[in-house]
Amino acid sequence: MHSRFFLLILIIAGLVVAFVPLSFRPIAPQERTFRIGARQFAYSPSELKVNPGDKVTIQLVSTDVVHGLYIDGYDISIEADPGQTAALNFFADKPGSFRFRCNVTCGAMHPFMIGKLTVGSNQWLYRSIGLSIIAAISLFFIRSTRPSDRQLPITIY
């Protein structure tokens, strides 16, 4: 009975960690502008952090060949010719962590030309860490209640 109850608690805890909306102290939206240099096969800066609701402008400057910038999740992109600057404006209305990547074939390592945009907090990372902790706790629980550890009645034949 105890083990079933504990398991139920763990499952509920797991569901809460996985799905309950996280609310953070709201920060007033701002206008944020990033000037990103693009070269084969890297962005500089390659990690951007904004707050939910921010109005973001990305100025993409290509320093060698034609490069693009596509943001996963937001499904928006721009392209910049060599030496030219292209601008991308959007509202950061989806929280979380998103990869941005080159969407114009620019050379051998093109599929791995990647950057990272974090809007607010990286919620899935925190949720995953929480789930890992719950998993570890449940494993120690399973270990401590496995049949071989329980006191079995002694039978004398």
Binding site: A18, D72, N103, S128, L131, S132, A135, L139, R146
Partner: peptide, 29 residues
């Protein structure tokens, strides 16, 4: 070119990694 199913990528990766952790821990036990 267009990435596919990016909205389920993070949950799927979480499922794989946390599931892998549980699986490995059981194997270790």
């Amino acid at each position: 070119w267009k990435p596919m199913l990016t909205s389920i990528l993070a949950p799927a990766q979480t499922l794989a990694l946390v599931g892998g952790l549980i699986w490995s821990a059981r194997t270790a036990q």
